[in-house]
Amino acid sequence: MRARVPSLVLSRLLIALVTLVIVSFAVFFATTLLPGDTASILLGQAATPEAVAGLRTAMHLDEPALFRFLRWCLGLLRGDLGTSYANNMPVATLIAGRLVNTLKLAGLTALISVPLALTLGITAAMWRGSVYDRIVTIVTIGVISVPEFVVATSAVLLFAVYLKWLPALSFTNEIHSFYDLLRAYAMPVITLTFVVSAQMIRMGRAAVIETLNTPYVEMALLKGASRPRLVLKHALPNALGPIVNAMALSLSYLLGGVIIIETIFNYPGIAMLMVDAVSTRDLPLIQSCAMIFCLGYLVLITAADVIAILANPRLR
């Protein structure tokens, strides 16, 4: 019995690794399917055929796709993400700063939204059917239904335009004090928290309520346990798996899916970088961004699964 947990965790990690290889394959070949020949785009309309051919050889574009894929993978393993086609800078340098920005935003949002969602979801389940539960449910459904750009624009309208409390744009390079930091991040973080928490609250509430209907919770009730004890001691440990998974899904969105927020607040994150790269056909940059998104997603989901395995006493 005891040996099952390590082997399960190990196999889960192995699956993640295999998935990563498949994903890298998909990313590479999907990007090569983008229309247009990179060499001729780079050199412009006036380029001679010889120049184009020369560049193609230099960039290994005339090699079979499989070789280019392997070359690219080897590069990734060595930490060499390639060189941007658009401005000849190493992709790693381009991404580094943006990635830090994105991680900051995601981290701050997670820091606020996870405890908030957990508290709201669990308390709503605890007092199921009460006025409080209904209000939480209605508000979360409302937030899920409203697209994030509406939330973001409304926030800008309210806090920046009418109240003039906060800047409409997030100038992260002008941060000198903690106060500046708060001002710059307040609106994006609030908007993202809205978007991300709603789903987590609903999933958390549903998972806890499901375990509340089990015979062992009834048994605890008949032992005289109070409602908070029922939920925290008996229901929550058994609802942990689904809750952690819902959280991982919601949080993975913060890594790759925040393009709208970044655009509205002019926040220099990695999603914007990728959109720019697509418009300039900057393949190495697109590939690297896509790989980072996928990696983030995989790490979160794998972590959630591993936590679920560790939390399951039947496997202990």
Binding site: T214, P215, M219, A311
Partner: peptide, 12 residues
């Protein structure tokens, strides 16, 4: 309870 198997919390 009727089914002790279901009435024990699996996590404790």
């Amino acid at each position: 309870p009727q089914s002790a198997a279901a009435a024990f919390n699996p996590a404790a």
